[in-house]
């Protein structure tokens, strides 16, 4: 009799756990590809940009600079882990409270060329950063990010130049300093608009 009670208790706990832990979710995004370290090791100062293109391929971004130009290669991996909790009661069992944390692994490689097309500076960064946390109340079968990482996976500027004058007014008026046009410098994706040339777009 006692053994039956323990067994019932175990089953009940298991059912409650199954009912409560109703949505562990893993979301991964790979965006772009950066050159591997073994390839970037071949790059050096005074190398011509023709050789750089042969070695690394086209960059993510190109921009004119006052006395030359720049290439930037960039890629991301976004990992979000969520824990979903759902009360095992009538109506609410169809919904879950999802808590998520996200990390971003970013690789960036930047080269600056002089007016003769020769490398005068280059550098790379490999970073694993905390991308934030999020909490959402959602339908139980929903699998979507609760951490907002749209600033990293938005459309690249090359796709969006045609609508640049249809942007919100602060952005459209700041077009002369736009970092998406390839003529006013380069910035990494996700750079806050409260600094540099985008300060006027801050909202």
């Amino acid at each position: 009799m006692a053994r039956t009670s323990v067994r019932q208790l175990h089953v009940t706990v298991l059912v409650l756990m199954l009912g409560a832990l109703s949505g562990c979710t893993s979301i991964t995004k790979h965006i772009g590809a950066s050159p591997s370290p073994s390839v970037t090791e071949q790059i050096g100062v005074d190398m011509h940009y023709h050789q750089v293109l042969d070695t690394l391929g086209p960059p993510t971004r190109i921009s004119a600079l006052p006395d030359g130009f720049a290439f930037e290669y960039e890629s991301f991996r976004i990992d979000e882990r969520q824990l979903g909790l759902s009360p095992n009661v009538k109506f609410l069992r169809w919904f879950k409270l999802a808590y998520g944390t996200a990390r971003v692994a970013r690789e960036t490689y930047t080269l600056v060329f002089d007016s003769n097309g020769l490398v005068k500076a280059f550098g790379n960064a490999r970073e694993d950063q905390d991308a934030g946390k999020g909490l959402a109340f959602q339908f139980i079968v929903t699998v979507t990010q609760v951490v907002d990482t749209r600033y990293l996976d938005e459309w690249p500027g090359q796709h969006a130049w045609g609508v640049s004058m249809l942007q919100p007014l602060p952005v459209a008026l700041n077009r002369e300093q736009s970092l998406d046009s390839g003529e006013h410098g380069i910035e990494q994706r996700g750079t806050p608009t409260s600094s540099g040339q985008r300060t006027l777009e801050w909202r």
Binding site: L18, L21, S22, G23, C24, T25, S26, I27, T28, K29, H30, I31, G32, A33, L53, G57, P58, P59, T60, I62, I140, V141, V143, D153, P156
Partner: peptide, 20 residues
């Protein structure tokens, strides 16, 4: 994406093909 309620997973890959 695979949805099993207790465990869900989603994977997305964005690739770029460029010519300059």
């Amino acid at each position: 994406a695979y949805i099993f309620i207790l465990w869900n997973t989603s994977q997305q890959t964005v690739e770029y093909d460029r010519a300059v």
